[in-house]
Design a protein around this nucleic acid. Sequence first.
DNA 1: GTATTTGTTCTATAAACGCCGAACAATGAT
DNA 2: ATCATTGTTCGGCGTTTATAGAACAAATAC
Lengths: 110, 110
Amino acid sequence: MKQYQHPTIDQITLTGVLHALSDPVRLNFVQCLANLMCEQPCGSIPTPVAKSTMSHHLRVLREAGIVYIRTEGTQSLTSLRLDELSTKFPGLLESVLKAALEESAADPAK
Amino acid sequence: MKQYQHPTIDQITLTGVLHALSDPVRLNFVQCLANLMCEQPCGSIPTPVAKSTMSHHLRVLREAGIVYIRTEGTQSLTSLRLDELSTKFPGLLESVLKAALEESAADPAK
DNA sequence: GTATTTGTTCTATAAACGCCGAACAATGAT
DNA sequence: ATCATTGTTCGGCGTTTATAGAACAAATAC
């Protein structure tokens, strides 16, 4: 397909990260990514939105520095930039993911 | 003046909190609030926006469950709901504030 | 009473956002 | 070459957002 541009660590901003994670669809996707612990094609994670919408969300996550995307064949493999984010903002993504987990556990609906 | 409505702990959502903190003006205000360690009138914290805009931002922070606002005389006193947020999302606000501090330390401009 | 202070609400505007379908691109399979 | 798979990009639509100024409300000071 094509190659993607990713921000370097010092280009990542806190507000950018928070904004990217503040959308339910994106947060849920990041949560799945963290659970699976390995890079995933976009299609392997179920989403409630159209694929063009998901492409937009992945772009936001990528430009915020949260995920790394590479292409292999026809699919684009997405992985969390966990190490780099932990370097830039220690504990941040961890506590967000923990909070997301607890919230979804407390609310069995949806 | 008037009294405000605040969400209960279980009405607070993670995406709501993240969204509220993803705006630079709001995040900066929350940072100041955390540093001062006590409730503050809105006007005591310098902001780059008009007071009507700040009123809007405070409303967002209040409705997200991040701040508590009460009125005394003509001024409205704002305080962080740190304890309640720590109960709902342990470590979250702490790591966001730590990240904000480190980011502003790394970038002496602005 | 009038004036001052502090903040809210209203109205408007411009930008950003989330969403989708259609068209397109690139790879892989038949 | 044709078809299927996997995503991206584009155009558009409706909603939300950040912003500010003007008008308003309430408490305080004079």
